[in-house]
């Protein structure tokens, strides 16, 4: 009997990973450091992290549960805290996690290389394979399992990190995952006020507004949830309108799932025109109002 050991932080992550674990192993054991999760695994553990500790330090308990339960494959959720837990367990096993996995076939995991410049296939060299997955690789609704959740006591490591405060991030009004249409802005926007042109187009299309990395990290014109690309959101709307985005691989990897890609750029040689369905060469300041008016 093969066994999968799932490490998750969010409930949705736990369900997705447990659904995926079912495809890779006969038995599924879940350890959650967020909310207790029932109905997703054959054995479900919950670690209640004390308010003064960080979930990352739950590794002492997680590793003890692994020692007791075992597992031929470890599936971790790709959140910062779960990545810490996965790394601590991998280190103990003499393993290294293969992260950002999009598929596992016969022990070979597929993930991106250089932000989508390449696709890498790799496999664990040791006895235990450790993978982490971002959201959306597996279907959370397919998860099945016991309703019983076992509480496992949090055991602090030596030199534990103290958590002294926490502030919820302002709820984001960005919802790229469910959007039918997305208008994404890139470096072609020279001034922040020009973004209004993109907002007008998005309003006409019923689209969400997104951006490429420089507009979320270089300048602060967008919240980071709005950034589409390798280390940001990966989206699959019906229509993706890339405005003033050159079309670097690192960005396109985030929107390649779109049914139709539309590009507006003043540089006719921009790589985005080789990766789009409908392209228009021109200054966004004239093209966007005209397009908005014509729709």
């Amino acid at each position: 009997m093969s066994k999968a050991f799932v490490i998750a932080e969010t409930e949705n992550g736990a369900r997705e990973l447990c659904a995926g674990a079912r495809k890779l192993a006969d038995e599924v054991v879940l350890v959650s450091v967020g909310a207790p999760v029932s109905g997703a695994a054959d054995k479900s553990f919950h670690i209640d992290v004390p308010a003064g500790n960080i979930a990352d330090d739950a590794y002492v308990t997680v590793n003890k549960i692994y020692d007791a339960e075992g597992g031929d494959v470890v599936l971790g959720e790709q959140t910062l805290r779960a990545l810490s837990l996965v790394g601590r367990l991998a280190a103990k096993l003499g393993a290294a996690a293969i992260t950002g996995v999009s598929a596992v076939e016969g022990g070979v995991a597929t993930s991106m290389y250089f932000g989508g410049t390449g696709v890498r296939e790799a496999k664990a060299a040791g006895d235990v394979a450790v993978y982490t997955f971002g959201p959306g690789v597996f279907d959370a609704s397919e998860a099945t399992g016991t309703d019983a959740v076992e509480e496992a006591a949090f055991e602090a490591p030596e030199n534990a990190v103290a958590k002294t405060g926490s502030e919820a991030l302002p709820p984001s009004d960005v919802n790229l995952a469910g959007a039918d249409a997305i208008v994404a802005c890139g470096r072609g926007f020279g001034a922040e006020e020009d973004l209004q042109l993109a907002r007008d187009l998005a309003a006409k299309l019923g689209a969400e507004l997104a951006c490429s990395r420089p507009l979320a990290e270089g300048v602060d014109w967008f919240p980071r949830e709005a950034y589409v690309g390798v280390s940001g959101a990966v989206v699959s709307p019906k229509v993706y309108v890339a405005v003033g985005i050159s079309g670097q691989m690192q960005h396109m990897v985030g929107c390649n799932g779109a049914d139709v890609i539309v590009a507006v750029n003043k540089d006719k040689n921009a790589p985005v025109f080789k990766a789009c369905d409908y392209g228009f060469v021109g200054d966004l300041k004239t093209v966007l109002p005209a397009l908005t008016a014509a729709l």
Partner: peptide, 26 residues
Amino acid sequence: AVEEVSVKAPAEVDRKKEMFDDVDAF
């Protein structure tokens, strides 16, 4: 701890690559 099996360029998504110069048609 991990063995690399292959690294390849990603499969190209087939796109129409249709260019417009008329905004109404676009």
